[in-house]
Amino acid sequence: MWQEMAKYGRKLVGHGLVESNFGNISVRAGDRMLITRSGTALDEITGDNVVEVEIQDTSSLDIIASSETVVHREIYTKTSALAIIHAHCPYSVVESLLAGPAGTIVPVDSEGQYFLGNIPVVSGGIGSLELAENLAGELSGHRGAVVFSHGTFAIGRTLGEAYIVTTQLEHSCRIKYLYELAAVKK
């Protein structure tokens, strides 16, 4: 499974959706999850960069797992997600700053409106229980959300689905930003 995680890590970095050492990826496997280690370069994932931890309980391996492990756990507990991608997509971060910590990003492109609907912006510190609860709550009704000033979280039945949601989030945020920039210049 780490090979699939590596594939999407390379795609995320290659398409500018995340800088190499930021973001994380996980996959649910029954009552456990495979998650990237803290500080892992997503374009260089190997079997040694992936940690297997329980979903319901903390583990001694949490110390080397992603700092967002608590967030992934809560999402898996409260949603039907089988895969999660967290990226630091630049336009999504900018749009979250413009929307505010409890705001909503309203896509202006037809694909964003159709596939995503309104995109929730959630607050909470990196790797905090507050963030975990806020995200899990929003992702129970949305396929993706943006953490205020931090980045996107996307869920799916597969990493491929979570990746597509990540690209849709960033595409809609980029279109919205460029549209609003052009509208101001008129």
Rank of each mutant, 00 (worst) to 15 (best):
H86Q: 12
S128Y: 03
G127W: 12
D57C: 13
R37N: 09
E52C: 06
V18C: 12
S149A: 10
H142C: 13
E68K: 02
G16L: 15
L17Q: 03
G117K: 01
A145Y: 05
S92G: 14
G127V: 04
L98S: 10
E170W: 06
V165W: 00
E52P: 15
F153C: 02
P101A: 06
H88Y: 13
R157G: 03
S67Q: 14
M5A: 08
I64F: 01
T158Y: 06
M1A: 03
A83C: 07
V50I: 07
D109S: 02
F22P: 11
L116C: 00
F153Q: 03
S59V: 10
G47F: 12
V184P: 13
G125H: 01
V27R: 10
P120L: 08
V94T: 10
E95A: 00
E54P: 02
I55F: 15
A145N: 05
I64D: 02
Y91Q: 06
G100R: 09
T158I: 00
F153H: 10
E54W: 14
Y163S: 02
S59T: 13
E161R: 01
L82E: 15
R143Q: 12
G117H: 00
G137A: 14
L178Q: 09
T166S: 01
W2A: 02
P120I: 11
I25W: 07
G144C: 12
I164K: 09
V108N: 01
M5E: 03
T152G: 02
T166E: 05
F148Q: 02
V70K: 13
G127P: 15
I63G: 02
V94C: 00
G14T: 05
L169T: 08
G112Y: 06
G141V: 13
G30I: 12
S123Q: 12
F22G: 14
T69I: 10
A154C: 13
E133P: 11
H88P: 10
S80I: 07
L61I: 04
G117M: 04
H142S: 13
V165C: 10
G125P: 01
F115H: 04
V106D: 06
E4Y: 09
Y76Q: 12
L61K: 01
I126L: 14
F153E: 06
G9E: 07
K186E: 15
L42W: 10
